[in-house]
């Protein structure tokens, strides 16, 4: 067990979450946006596990398990949508679908 103050762990989770948010906002590639969402989910999981370790309860780890399940389902559906997106637009740019193309 480490004796790092929990503020440092939470701070690291916050930094990772901000990086993921930056990725979602700044990148125009759908694949990178999905990857950044994964980063954000992972950062939230770190915060959960850190809180669970702080109070020596298993609930934090169980919340991370649920986040993991949700991330797996989300990635499967998201990648399927990205494949269809690429088939129909020929690019991975998020802006390609905008502007009333239909």
């Amino acid at each position: 067990m480490i004796t790092v103050p929990i503020e440092h762990v939470i701070l690291m989770a916050a930094i990772l979450f901000s990086l993921g948010l930056t990725g979602v906002l700044a990148r125009r590639n759908v694949l990178f946006i999905l990857l950044s969402i994964e980063v954000m989910l992972n950062a939230a999981g770190i915060a959960f596990v850190a809180a669970g370790a702080r109070w020596a309860q298993a609930d934090g780890q169980i919340m991370f398990l649920f986040i993991l399940t949700m991330a797996a389902a989300e990635v499967a559906v998201g990648l399927a949508i990205i494949l269809q997106y690429y088939r129909h637009t020929g690019t991975l740019d998020v802006d390609a679908m905008g502007g009333g193309r239909r």
Partner: peptide, 17 residues
């Protein structure tokens, strides 16, 4: 990045996670 986070989980006392 994920491997590093796994290492953090391990030293934080959550080896299963």
């Amino acid at each position: 990045s994920l491997l590093a986070v796994a290492m953090i989980f391990f030293v934080m006392g959550a080896p299963f996670i």
